[in-house]
């Protein structure tokens, strides 16, 4: 683990050089401790695959004082060798019908499998939230089973519909809102993933466990899904 200065009020902590489930779990736990331990000194926290970017409120602390406080919190993790508390697990219903799985043909062809097999594989895995970014609530989930890994589209779509579940490389994600995007769309969830009027505005946070569950068209529509 190393702590590097970034700008006048930010530091970054690197936990590892490589992406792994273990690192994701440590980062999720460190975020929890840092939020509590740094309290009002902390202005923003940006966890990602192998790092956490932290920025401080310079009216509460100087950068050196902030680094010391961060070190103190991180020592707790190392000294106690704490197990990560049970992560929240989310199950997201997904409709994998052809009218919403916009890239089903390409995905199926690339995997060399019938699309129903692809769906089975996609729903077989328990994914980790590795990072959230690109757009509010856009969570990068990994890792997808090797047989359905697939590169991004050569030309991104101008508009990927809200709720679209998509895959790219070894990852899968849900588009919380309609936006341009280059991932291969495999299905759609009726669940609203982002609510700016709520305190807990995103369904996801880094380190959480996510599973997808296939639902049929009727259930999708009954849950408020839009075709």
């Amino acid at each position: 683990m190393k702590i590097n200065l970034v700008n006048e009020n930010s530091v970054i902590i690197y936990f590892s050089d490589t992406v792994s489930i273990e690192t994701a779990d440590r980062i999720a736990y460190a975020c929890h401790l840092l939020r509590n331990g740094l309290a009002t000194m902390l202005s923003d926290i940006v966890p990602s695959y192998t790092s956490i970017l932290l920025s401080c409120n310079l009216r509460k602390t100087g950068l050196q004082g902030f680094v010391l406080a961060v070190k103190r919190v991180l020592e707790q993790i190392e000294a106690h060798n704490v197990d990560t508390p049970a992560a929240k697990q989310i199950t997201l219903p997904v409709y994998y019908g052809e009218e919403v799985a916009l890239d089903y043909a390409e995905i199926s062809e690339h995997a060399g499998l019938p699309f129903s097999e692809v769906v089975k594989l996609h729903t077989s895995e328990c994914y980790r939230v590795f990072a959230i970014g690109f757009a509010p609530g856009f969570a990068y989930l990994g890792n997808t089973p090797e047989s359905i890994t697939m590169p991004r589209k050569m030309t991104p779509r101008a508009k990927v519909p809200k709720g679209s579940v998509a895959i790219a490389d070894q990852q899968t994600a849900v588009y919380p809102r309609s936006s341009p995007g280059g991932w291969q769309v495999i299905g759609r969830t009726p669940v609203n993933l982002l609510d700016f009027s709520q305190d807990n505005l995103s369904q996801f946070s880094v380190g959480e466990h996510v599973r997808f569950e296939a639902i049929d068209r009727v259930t999708f529509l009954a849950m408020g899904g839009e075709l």
Binding site: N7, S10, V46, S48, S51, L53, S55, A131
Partner: peptide, 10 residues
């Protein structure tokens, strides 16, 4: 390069 948090002015 592994994605990481972007600070102001990066």
């Amino acid at each position: 390069f592994i994605s990481e948090g972007i600070a102001l002015g990066a």
